[in-house]
Write a protein that binds this DNA or RNA. Structure first.
Lengths: 229, 229
DNA sequence: CCAAAAGTGTTCACGGTACACCCATGC
DNA sequence: GCATGGGTGTACCGTGAACACTTTTGG
């Protein structure tokens, strides 16, 4: 390896695709840029990586600073390095995606005065930089991942009904599922704890609430469980 | 986004995990370092990303320079950014993995005088930096990917026997497969072209040769084919 | 003729899918 | 009592898994 000091360096950023689900829609959290380039355009939350923090720390810090969100499921997505993705100079960005429970994270004003807002993925504005591409990549990853890993629960409240869970899968996968088969399948996994509670304040028969049993899940994974919806 | 000029920058490298399959073993191409740190240790081929090349271009260039390999299947793996992964300074590395046909790529002396050699993944030396971790990540990815995408063919010669293909899967997945079921399944996919040729110079009945029909595969993928072994 | 690997079908168990009605509750 | 969603079971089909013998060829 040659000395790294001899050459100009690319800048390094992180960007986060934050997903949430909200009555019938899969949503993404965007912030409105207040600086050039792409001033006033909507963009993914993100920013420069400090030299003394890990990539994941940088992603979490930017999320906190720009959107007020702090406890989330976060996973690295892909690193984007096209030559002209930032018009100012060479910038490589490591993209992450995050899953949040919208019930816990009402939209907060960003701490640094940029506006933050949730957009349905089916109705997005044109984004800054190559953020359209990053978002599309994240969506594809979420759709693939949700089939074989129980990440969907990160998007629901702790206590949820089976119908809510089914709706979640239908929203993400973009096709309807059969109610009886869905229930049979998820209950057969033995990963849901049936609670002694039902939903409140509904104008019809109240549905039973369930909780995802993460402890059991981790144990079963070690024994070679293959989660699949 | 704040100006990127105000802060010290991390260095950016690419590293490549190059897989090949050779009579019964899954192998990885390593180079021996001739500089500190980790002088004389084996390491993944890789190096600094130039400011005017994409990440993929950098990976391909380093592969060519350090190992002489040029036409390969290449895919981004993961970006590693621990604080102390390089003892000299902060270095982020974007890892790629590559699949090569060993028949086409006999081990070549590296052009810059470092030694390059193939190692069975079951018998690896201790590697420089966090390259053990990168390699383990690549291996897990290959094992997952080979089940649901036809990447295995990148590791075989253009013309191969069904037994060679089965051996390949057994080597990567690390468990034996049933011969009749395996043949039934891969032939049912209709992605193999039966050639009018048989293998040569074997001391027993010669097996028929097949070729992977990439054209048909691409067409079927568009129609929603789900390849799976 | 012997050694070595090629090639080939059937049975069984299980999981996926399709499908419709009664029940509980709030208003 | 009516509207709304909650909750439940069965029959069929296709795929995955287990399993052993005959054929071809070279030496």
């Amino acid at each position: 390896m040659a000395s790294s000091y001899e050459h100009p360096r690319a800048a390094l950023t992180v960007d986060c695709v934050v997903f949430g689900v909200d009555d019938g829609d899969l949503k993404v959290l965007l912030i409105q840029r207040d600086l050039e380039p792409f001033r006033n355009r909507w963009a993914l939350p993100g920013g420069f990586v400090h030299v003394d923090e890990t990539l994941e720390q940088a992603a979490l810090r930017e999320l906190r600073e720009e959107t007020g969100i702090s406890r989330v499921y976060l996973e690295q997505l892909y690193t984007f390095g096209s030559l002209a993705r930032d018009p100012r100079e060479r910038v490589i960005t490591v993209a992450y995606y995050a899953l949040v429970k919208l019930t816990d994270h009402a939209v907060q004003a960003a701490t640094d005065a940029r506006e933050a807002a949730w957009f349905a993925v089916t109705d997005l504005p044109k984004l800054a930089f190559d953020h359209d591409e990053i978002l599309a990549t994240a969506l594809a990853r979420l759709q693939a991942k949700v089939r074989y890993e129980p990440v969907g629960f990160e998007l629901l409240p702790q206590k949820f009904t089976l119908t809510q869970l089914q709706r979640l899968y239908e929203i993400i996968l973009e096709h309807p599922l059969d109610k009886r088969n869905f229930r049979k399948k998820v209950l057969a996994l033995d990963l849901l704890l049936e609670l002694d509670e039902v939903e409140q304040d509904v104008a019809h028969r109240a549905a039973r609430l369930y909780r995802f049993d993460e402890r059991t899940y981790r144990a079963l994974v070690k024994q070679g469980l293959h989660f699949e919806i």
